[in-house]
């Protein structure tokens, strides 16, 4: 099959970018989307042009490195699918495919389709952990956790930190990302102890990074490659409000 690619090219963070058009012939429907880009890059390299810079690593949908905005959708047209898991059989012969980087103030572009997601790191560093030292853990089964809760915490914990929620949100909000971690810990006994403090710190950091606010359009859930539910955002809101209500307790 043949496709026409319209790809955002931008030399570096300061440069002004633009769309370049690349007609690509003999694409196999069995190729993954990123293999199709590899194929383009191989041709560009051999022609002496600079290949398109994009990030990727595991190519099996778990590391969260890849993330392209494809034809108006983060990670492309398939639901619950990362860019690397997307295959060309999901496109039509002759299709024009727009490929853009994530766009958000908090995700500045570094080159072509690579964005800087260190704002996500700082949210996690604010309090995305349980304060426990190596060696101080009690026997693993001393704290039973109901299967239902454990499974729910797992669902929240499957976030891969790719940033599709921010890319999908009309407000570039990172609520789903923060909520997934906050909810995971708030639900289980190990994390409950400092849940209030955690939500306070992480939400404050999130706001400081320049993400937008949530207006409950649920675009994040729709485009999350791991299908993480906005229920966790509600849980975070609840935790946040109650942390405000009893703030004096932990100052």
């Amino acid at each position: 099959m043949n496709v026409t690619l319209k790809i955002w090219r931008q030399k570096n963070a300061q440069a002004k970018g633009k769309f370049n058009t690349y007609p690509l012939k003999d694409v196999s429907p069995e190729m993954s989307f990123l293999e199709m880009l590899d194929y383009l890059n191989m041709q560009l390299t051999e022609q002496g042009e600079e290949p398109v810079a994009f990030e990727h690593d595991c190519r099996e949908g778990i590391c969260g490195t890849c993330g392209l905005y494809i034809n108006g959708r983060p990670h492309g047209p398939m639901r619950n699918t990362t860019t690397c898991e997307l295959h060309m059989r999901s496109f039509k012969d002759g299709e024009i495919i727009y490929i853009e980087p994530w766009r958000a103030r908090a995700f500045p572009i570094m080159k072509d389709l690579i964005v800087d997601r260190s704002s996500f790191e700082r949210i996690m560093r604010a309090a995305g952990f349980i304060n426990t030292n190596t060696g101080s853990a009690p026997e693993a089964n001393s704290n039973p956790v109901s299967k239902i809760i454990a499974d729910k915490a797992f669902d929240a914990a499957t976030c891969i930190g790719c940033g599709a929620c921010v890319a999908a949100c009309k407000n570039s909000s990172a609520m789903l990302y923060a909520a997934a971690k906050i909810a995971q810990y708030a639900m289980i006994p190990q994390g409950k102890v400092e849940a209030k403090d955690r939500v306070d710190k992480m939400v404050r950091q999130m706001d400081a990074e320049g993400f937008g606010f949530c207006s409950n359009t649920y675009g994040c859930e729709f485009d999350c490659p791991k299908g993480i539910s906005v229920d966790f955002i509600a849980l975070m809101n609840r935790e946040f409000l109650s942390s405000k209500a009893c703030k004096q307790k932990h100052g």
């Binding site: 047209p77 999908a168 485009d223």
Partner: peptide
């Protein structure tokens, strides 16, 4: 704030079915 959170908009309009 929300408008500002995305200074450069997408070329291809979001195609979300929400």
């Amino acid at each position: 704030i929300n408008y500002n959170a995305r200074p450069v908009k997408y070329k291809k309009a979001p195609r979300t079915e929400i």
